[in-house]
């Protein structure tokens, strides 16, 4: 018992001491930071709100507020979109059976490749796409019936979920070029779209297992009463899966809220998110610890409050089925 408490308190200190240091640093004058470690406010150093003032009201206020707004908009929009698309896909994968023919997929890939080569070789892109679609339809009409081998739901699910293995750095260059040609570089839209794609795999994975634990009988009853599939999904399945949805939403939100690498590639001054603002405080005059501490604090505060409020939800919702293998 005593041993347990000792270890638990020790680890709590390990977790909290850095945060305490963050808080005190944000209240120190630069000279108090550089003169060596001071631990206790009012006794060892006189707390000052100069950094808070500078970040929130002073010179940097506009930048901070813009970055904060970007982070909030990008985070919530993309978390919402991801959960929406991912949940729909997960529901589809647990309640419908899909049997895309292997041959169909191969022909589609072939046509897309041909169109790509044609565009690359200088053919007008509208023409190339139309030709590819025509070719695809002709091939499907002539050969389509003969295909026997098909993929099942688990194959599709595995394919979707395995996208998480993709290192972002492997796809970010073409995405960068794509947004550049679409004139979307350095906009919130670019970040929202990219984050949605990146996090989709997590949502599909978590929610698919969640849906497998929801009994199908209720939905069957509703179906017998004549409810359409969308209605069943919207007014029966979604309300039943609130814990899972909340946990998943929070996970995705935290991921997008904290994301750094993709934002570094895809955003400049306009769509800059908070992690980039923090990183920028290490500029020419060396790291500005006091400003950084303020920024880190205002950035983690909302997430930590959410986490504390929903701690039970997170562990329960996340684990209903998914991680058990």
């Amino acid at each position: 018992m005593v041993v347990s408490y000792t270890i638990m308190i020790f680890w709590a200190i390990v977790v909290l001491l850095p945060l305490y240091w963050l808080l005190t640093t944000s209240l120190k004058l630069p000279i108090d930071v550089n003169m060596g470690p001071f631990y206790i406010p009012f006794i060892e150093f006189e707390p000052s709100l100069h950094a808070w003032d500078y970040i929130l009201l002073g010179d940097l206020a506009n930048d901070t507020i813009r970055a904060y707004k970007n982070t909030v908009i990008v985070g919530f929009t993309s978390a919402f979109l991801t959960v929406l698309l991912g949940t729909a896909a997960a529901y589809g994968l647990t309640r419908f059976s899909y049997r895309p023919k292997l041959g169909t997929i191969l022909i589609a890939i072939g046509c897309i490749a041909l169109a790509g080569i044609a565009i690359w070789a200088g053919v007008n892109w509208i023409l190339a796409i139309i030709a590819a679609i025509v070719l695809f339809i002709v091939l499907m009409q002539t050969l389509g019936r003969r295909f026997k081998r098909s993929l099942g739901n688990s194959d599709i699910a595995f394919w979707l979920i395995s996208q998480r293995m993709l290192p972002p750095v492997a796809v970010v260059l073409p995405i960068y070029v794509m947004f550049q040609t679409l004139n979307l570089l350095d906009t919130q839209a670019a970040l929202i779209i990219t984050y949605t794609a990146v996090n989709l795999a997590i949502v599909v994975w978590l929610m698919r297992d969640y849906f497998q634990t929801i009994p199908i009988e209720i939905e069957e009853c509703a179906a017998i009463d004549g409810a359409s599939r969308f209605r069943i999904f919207w007014s029966i399945v979604l309300p039943l899966s609130v814990p899972g949805l909340v946990a998943t939403f929070l996970f995705v939100l935290v991921f997008t809220w904290n994301e750094y690498l993709l934002a570094l590639f895809l955003s400049g001054a306009n769509a800059q998110t908070l992690p980039l603002t923090i990183a920028a405080q290490s500029a020419t005059r060396g790291p500005q610890w006091w400003y950084m501490s303020v920024l880190i604090l205002i950035m983690i505060l909302p997430v930590i409050i959410i986490a504390i409020l929903l701690e039970r939800y997170i562990s329960r919702g996340l684990l209903v089925g998914s991680i058990k293998g």
Partner: peptide, 10 residues
């Protein structure tokens, strides 16, 4: 639980 919520840059 807290450290997980902090941005890696932070």
């Amino acid at each position: 639980l807290i450290p997980m919520m902090i941005t890696p840059v932070g």
